[in-house]
């Protein structure tokens, strides 16, 4: 009447018991769960952009979302240390499509979010499009890296008139880094630079 204990984990790839994250290396199941976490965080980030751009939200509310958004990034939007050196604050590339020509400009994330808050349209709609895609996460030095792709629609209006609309494909650099806090060290997902991959008419 007893269940017999089978210690064959192999049959359930992806559900191995994993050790508490004390080692310098992540197991495959851990990496898989951190990939899932990354997708959740990117989804949240896209939601933040929607709210920060939304003209009907108050200034204080937008600031709250900006703070939450910055939390997701390396250095919280300030310069950060990785690969043995300090890096400039993460950037967000912004693009515009005029007459079939795409212009791409990098903005420090903090500045980008502040600009987004006060775009000169009477209404702004930013919506996520398609599901987030994420690459393998692989070890680089003492941390892990990967890339995720997300899509978003942007529409800016003046009154009832749509002044600008596009759909962008963006690639965000993913870092899985060890962080120290009051309780020791642990692995954490953080975002790096976000680059425009493609901009099309929305």
């Amino acid at each position: 009447m007893k269940k017999y204990l089978l210690l064959l984990f192999i049959a359930f790839a992806g559900t191995f018991a994993v050790q508490a994250q004390e080692s310098d290396n992540l197991s495959e199941p851990e990496i898989e769960e951190l990939r899932e976490r990354t997708i959740q965080l990117i989804t949240d980030f896209q939601g933040y952009l929607t709210e920060i751009g939304n003209k009907s939200n108050s200034e204080s509310m937008k600031d709250y979302y900006i703070k939450s958004a910055l939390h997701l990034f390396m250095g919280n939007g300030d310069s950060y240390y990785i690969d043995g050196r300090y890096h400039d604050p993460v950037i967000m590339e912004v693009s515009s499509l005029r007459n079939g020509i795409t212009t791409v400009r990098p903005k420090p994330m903090k500045q980008y979010l502040q600009n987004l808050k006060r775009l000169r349209y009477t209404s702004v709609r930013i919506e996520k499009a398609e599901t987030v895609r994420i690459s393998n996460i692989y070890k680089v030095g003492d941390h892990y890296e990967g890339t995720a792709i997300f899509f978003q629609y942007f529409e800016g209006k003046q009154g009832e008139r749509t002044v600008y609309r596009d759909k962008t494909k963006k690639a965000v650099k993913i870092y899985v880094v060890r962080e120290d806090d009051d309780w020791g060290t642990h692995w954490n997902v953080k975002f790096g630079d976000i680059k425009v991959e493609e901009t099309t008419a929305g």
Binding site: Q21, P29, R37
Partner: peptide, 8 residues
């Protein structure tokens, strides 16, 4: 899996 801490 309840084994992997994904955020603290």
């Amino acid at each position: 899996s309840f084994n992997t801490m994904v955020s603290r």
